Computed example of a mutant assay.
Amino acid sequence: MTNIFGHRGAAGHYPENTMISFMAAYEAGADGIELDVQMTKDGELVVIHDETIDRTTTGAGYVHTYTYKELSRFDASYTFSQYKGKATVPTLIEVLEWAKQKNIIVNVELKNGIIHYPGLEEKVIHLIEKLNMNKQVIISSFNHYSLVECKKISNNIEIAILYMEGLYQPWEYAKRLGADGIHPHFYAATREIITNSINNDVAIRTFTVNDDKLIQQLLNNQCSAIITDFPEKAVKLRDMLSRKA
């Protein structure tokens, strides 16, 4: 069965990468959530997509120039004014502790392609292991050097390669890096790549899939997972297909 992951929670209807959004994805029946991790000035792991806070919060500037206490004062309701005053930038530990209770899979994307956060891999993995969530968390990144570093630190957590397009035989590339999965943009998730990846025991989870027809196509092609801004819609489409089967 194809799993449904809520992209930054349920970002189509809720402020992305907030507890409100993650809870909504869970309530919609998502099997997992996808989130992004940056690091504050005082070394706190925080869940926010951009290297700056300008787009999604009421503040401005780079994440790494703020302490977590300073960062937590900003509103993170983004364009969803109905949640003003109710959404803040969460810490990774806050999200993981909640996810552990809900038994929902967490895809942690390391956002270290533009800014180098010293020790990010080690900090994230230490937290995952401390919470005994090795089998519940997937670490992904566009920075493949970082993924190799993760594998050196721990061989007990799944890693997955993020990429946009044009990667030749990505399942073979994944094996070379010691990765357990690939997370391509949906343009790069052809039927052939999906089939070959799964046949080679490499999970394939596509992002960010919001179109109904494309969701149905990927479900029919038995993609390992779909990462979407609208998990409630994807879950309904999956349920409809399973009833027809």
Rank of each mutant, 00 (worst) to 15 (best):
D54Y: 11
T58S: 12
G59F: 07
A60K: 13
G61Y: 08
G61D: 08
Y62L: 15
H64S: 13
K69G: 03
K69W: 07
E70Y: 02
R73N: 15
F74V: 08
F74R: 09
D75Q: 04
D75R: 00
A76L: 04
Y78L: 10
F80H: 12
S81C: 11
Q82D: 14
Q82I: 10
Y83K: 06
K84E: 14
K86Q: 14
A87R: 03
V89N: 05
T91V: 06
E94C: 10
L96V: 05
E97S: 08
E97W: 00
W98G: 04
W98L: 04
W98N: 03
N103P: 01
I104P: 02
I104M: 08
I104C: 02
I105F: 15
V106D: 01
V106Y: 01
K111G: 01
G113S: 14
G113I: 06
I115M: 13
Y117L: 12
P118Y: 12
K123M: 06
K123H: 02
K123C: 01
I125S: 04
I125L: 07
H126Q: 13
L127I: 01
L127F: 01
K130N: 09
K130Y: 09
L131H: 07
L131P: 04
M133D: 04
Q136L: 05
V137P: 03
I138K: 02
S140V: 10
S146D: 08
V148E: 09
E149V: 13
K151S: 07
K152Q: 09
S154F: 11
S154M: 04
I157E: 02
E158W: 08
I159Q: 08
I161G: 04
Q169R: 07
P170H: 10
W171G: 01
A174T: 08
R176Y: 00
L177V: 02
G178D: 08
G181H: 08
G181T: 07
I182S: 04
H183P: 09
P184A: 03
H185V: 10
H185A: 14
F186S: 07
Y187I: 14
Y187P: 06
A188L: 06
A189C: 14
T190C: 05
N196P: 01
S197V: 00
S197T: 01
N199F: 12
N199G: 11
